[in-house]
Amino acid sequence: MPSGWSLIRLGTVLVYLFMFAPVAVVILLAFNASQFGAFPMEGLSLRWFAALWENDAIVRAFETSLLLGLLTAVISTTLGVLASLAMVRYDFPGKNLIAAALIAPILVPEVVLAVALLLFLGAIGVPKSFPLLLAGHVIFTLPFVILVVQARLVGVKREYEEAAMSLGAGPVETFFQITLPLILPAVLAGALFAFTISFDDITGTLFWKPGGVETVPTQIFAMLRNSISPEINALGAVMIVITVAVPLLGAALARWLSARGRTG
């Protein structure tokens, strides 16, 4: 049924066009020489990128986002790997309940999670702070790390670890010599997920961030409320490049690592 298929194909193309056209427009306008974002463009320029660089608030937001993303990635990945090991390798009472609780943040709407954490911390009298913001990001990036790492760990036969231990390696040595190298691609993928999700997040961040601290998304949000400046297009373009390039790089790295793992 060729006609049916071509309709589906057309529909798919239109959906993607609808999704990505605005993104393309943002990137294009970021290079617009003119102050006013309208087509046809009047010339190409990098002036808005330069303006970004000179805007202290934006640079600060960038630094905050990077730091937050990196810390979230490191903490989430560490906790996620430990939790996955516990879930896959050990049996303990309440395991299913804990497994569900660890994955729950994906299922609960982010706003609800954000408000809940805020109310909870308010109730026990902890003020908003950067560590709180970080904790929030860790909580809702953790499920992604766990899902990815767990899936890989299930595929790593227990015998590899048992063989290593039978040869004299203790549990810690076995983890670093055998388990970690074998799950490394998944660990990297999890870390990248954590980083990009944290880097992009706005809902939770708006609730949790202390006064005066802005991340790139909340900074854009704040700028939008004043005016639509072309700087926003440039900033948007930079965000897009980062959130697309980081996972791509990661995927390439993971593929290279697992290829190396297979052949030597």
């Binding site: 036969k157 015998e159 048992e162 063989a163 039978s166 040869l167 190298p181 074998l182």
Partner: peptide, 12 residues
């Protein structure tokens, strides 16, 4: 010394 049914050589 333990030898497993599926060898369990460290693939990496």
């Amino acid at each position: 010394g333990v030898v497993f049914q599926n060898y369990a050589l460290f693939p990496h």
